[in-house]
Write a protein that binds this DNA or RNA. Structure first.
Lengths: 228, 228
DNA sequence: CTACTTTAGATTGTTGACAATATTGTATAC
DNA sequence: GTATACAATATTGTCAACAATCTAAAGTAG
C-alpha cells in the first residue's frame, strides 16, 4: 500500500528513484503481459539488466508478491502470477463492491458539474469510433473515467486497493473489449452511471456501477475460454 | 496478499517457519499495540532478539510496510504506522463495502442451518454477560462471527483484504466496545444480520452489515478524541 | 545565553561472497 | 529404450562487512 504519488510528496533521493523505477518497470511488464504468467523471473538476469544488485531485485519481488503480481516458491524463485478462473472470479467479486463505492464517493465529493466533459467523451462521437472498431478510444475513455473517479473519491486506501486489483486483472479487462458487443454495452452502462453522477444521485450511481462490473463478469464467464 | 494458510498447503521448511514466525510476531505486536504507533523499530535490536540476521528483519519490514502496518522512511528506518482520523475514516469506508460483501457471499454460499449456533451465541445469555460488562465474551462472539463468515464466503482475495484492513483498525475496534452503549447496539445489529442470514436473505444481510459498519463509524466519530 | 558548526556515534543501505537447494545433463543398469 | 542414480550446473537463501546517512552531543562564535 505504498506507491501513491502523494505519499512521498517532496523528497526523492537518487537511490530511491532507481529503486522505484525497478519496481514500477517490473509491475508494468507483468501487468501488460510483456512477460507471460508462469514465466520465471531470474534475480541475476534482472539485476544485470537494470544494473542493480540482486538484493534490490529481491526487494522488488517482495513488494510485487505482496501485491499478488508474483508467486514466490522457496528455493525455486519467483514467477509471474497466474490467473485461474476461480481467482479471476474472486477479483471480480471484490472489484464489484469497491468500484461501486468509488463511484458513490466520487459522486458525493466531486462537484456535479465536473462530470460534463466525461459525459461528452462518452457521447455520440464515441458511437462512431466504436462503429469502426476504434477500441483504443473507448479504452482511453474508460481509463480517464476511472482516474477521475478515484481522484474525486478522495480515499487513499480505496485508491490503492483499486489500483492493486486493477493491475491483477488489467489484461483480462483489455481482452474483454474484444468480445463483440461488450464495448457497446459497457458504453451504455457508463453513460447511465455518468448521468446519475451528474444528477448527484450517489446511491443510484453506485448501484449502476455494481451492475456494470457484474455484467463484465458475466461476459467474462461466457467467453472465459477465449480470454484466459 | 500472501500469508493465508491455504496458500502454502503442504511444504514447511525449517527456515520458512522461522521467517513466518518473525513476520507473524511483529504483526501481532503492532496490531495489539504491544509497540505503540510512531515507535521506531530498530533492525539490529529485532535481529538480536529473534536470533536472525538483519536481512530477515528487513524482509519482514517490507511485507508489513506493504500491508500498511509500518511506515518506512529512507535512511531513517521503520516505525509502527500511525492512524490519523482521516485514514481511519478511509478504512471504515472500505470496510463498509467489503464486510457487507463478505456477509452477502457467506449467506449465499454457507448452508442456512449453519448459522444456528452463532444465533444462539448472540442470544439471551449474551445480554446477561454484557449487563455485567463481560466485554471479552462479546468480543469473542464477534470474532467468531467474522471468521465463520470469511470461511463461508469462499473468496481468498476478499479474505486477505479483510484481514489486512482488520489488522490496521484492530485496536480502534477493540476500544470502541468500551464506549457505553456501543456493545449493546452492536449486538442488536449482529442479531438482525444473523436473522437475515439464517433466512437466506443475502441482500438484506449485506444491507444490514453495511449499516452496522456505518454505525460503528459514527460512534467512532463521536468519541474520536477518546479513541485515537 | 543562543545559534551555528563540528564531530562522534548510531542506524540504515548496499554489496559480494558463500551455503543450501533445485534443475539439468550424463551415465549406467535393466 | 526406459528408468534410475549420480554428477555438474544454475539459482536462490543467508550472512557479515563496508559505505552512506542521519542523530545527537560537544564545542565555538557572536
Amino acid at each position: 500500500m505504498a506507491a501513491t504519488s502523494s505519499d512521498k510528496a517532496i523528497s526523492l533521493s537518487p537511490a530511491e528513484v532507481v529503486n522505484d523505477h525497478l519496481i514500477e518497470e517490473l509491475r508494468r511488464r507483468i501487468v501488460d503481459h510483456a512477460v507471460a504468467p508462469g514465466v520465471p523471473l531470474r534475480e541475476q538476469d534482472l539485476a544485470t539488466e537494470f544494473g542493480v544488485s540482486r538484493a534490490r531485485v529481491r526487494h522488488a519481488f517482495n513488494i510485487l508478491e505482496e501485491r499478488g503480481l508474483i508467486e514466490h516458491i522457496r528455493n525455486r524463485g519467483a514467477m509471474v502470477a497466474r490467473l485461474d478462473p476461480r481467482k479471476a472470479g474472486e477479483l471480480f467479486e471484490v472489484r464489484e463492491v469497491l468500484e461501486a463505492q468509488m463511484v458513490r464517493l466520487a459522486t458525493e465529493r466531486g462537484p456535479a458539474e465536473s462530470w460534463g466533459d466525461l459525459t461528452e467523451l462518452f457521447g455520440k462521437s464515441m458511437d462512431a469510433k466504436l462503429a469502426r472498431n476504434d477500441l483504443g478510444a473507448y479504452e482511453d475513455a474508460v481509463h480517464l473515467f476511472r482516474r477521475r473517479c478515484i481522484e474525486a473519491a478522495k480515499n487513499e486506501v480505496l485508491s490503492n486497493l483499486l489500483d492493486s486489483l486493477y493491475d491483477r486483472t488489467h489484461v483480462l479487462i483489455r481482452r474483454l473489449v474484444l468480445v463483440p458487443g461488450r464495448a457497446q454495452e459497457g458504453m451504455r452502462q457508463h453513460r447511465e452511471i455518468l448521468a446519475a453522477m451528474r444528477d448527484g444521485k450517489a446511491e443510484k450511481a453506485e448501484r449502476l456501477k455494481r451492475k456494470n462490473i457484474r455484467s463484465a463478469r458475466e461476459w467474462f464467464d461466457n467467453y472465459r475460454e477465449y480470454l484466459l
